[in-house]
Amino acid sequence: MEEFSVVATENVSSRQRMSRKRNYDDDTRVYKSKNLEIEGRRREKLSASLLMLRGTIIVDAITYIEKLQYEAKIDEIDAVEDMKNWGIQAEVRVAKIDENKLWVKIIIEKKRGRFSKLMEALNNFGIELIDTNLATTKGASLITSCIQAIL
């Protein structure tokens, strides 16, 4: 009789333990899956926001570049049309005024950097400008100078 009762008790306790484990597992699984779904949704939202932001940045950059190009074109058109409207033509004249000296008269479109490039070119050719004048009007630049070769 005692042996029988002892066996019965053991069976009962083991059953209870098994049921507890199952409950615990179920709870854990449910909790994990919920959290995972929420995190997934959050990340999807963040990704979407990031994509939109990147798109906005690109659009802004494109707009800015187009604006710069537009402004540059305006500047160029102004200079060209100005000269046309006033009947001004680009020209270069050179006259010898001494053994080693020349006088030059140059008319070019007035654009930023043109004068710099001209000075750089003459300098590279070893030409020294002695007395120089530049006047600008109606989209044109008039440059006159005495020049001589650098010995």
Binding site: R112, G113, F115, I130, D131, T132, N133, L134, T136, C146
Partner: peptide, 16 residues
Amino acid sequence: HLLDQLNLDLQHVAGG
């Protein structure tokens, strides 16, 4: 070159 860098629009130059 410097005037270009400084965004100064050249109007008139005289000298020698």
